[in-house]
Amino acid sequence: MARAIPRLDWLQDARAEVNGDPGYRKLGSTDVVLGLSFGDESRLVTFEAFEVAEISEGVDLRDADLVLTMSPKDWNAYLRKRARGTGPSLLTLDLEQGVIGAASPLARIKLDRYNLSIQAFIDAGARLAA
């Protein structure tokens, strides 16, 4: 069976979309580094002030405040469900499957602190990936 490849091609486009979206800015300033870990692929998404400042490849995930870890297959399925409006929020996904890791309790709370902005970015990506 062919190995699933995680959908990550949407990251830069999603960054451009949210950075130009007044609705995203209205959510407020966001300061968190989110690591994405899907099998052999990883990325760092840096949220700073009112924009997604940077998306990095070939990175050390220890630089992240939060790390979202899923299998590529599950990640792609999650994006499809979010695009259809049937997928759970990242908060619920973490409750059910423990997908978010953090180095400390303070870092872990950042998912709750910025949940609306992080979800908005992921959902922009899900729409683009669909």
Partner: peptide, 26 residues
């Protein structure tokens, strides 16, 4: 609040709990 968000019955409740979570996390 995390569990209430998971079991929200409608969009109003989901958003209410998510906003409240942001406040409580601070």
């Amino acid at each position: 609040l995390r569990y209430l968000e998971k079991h929200a019955n409608n969009e109003a409740e989901a958003l209410l709990y998510r906003y409240a979570l942001q406040d409580k996390a601070r």
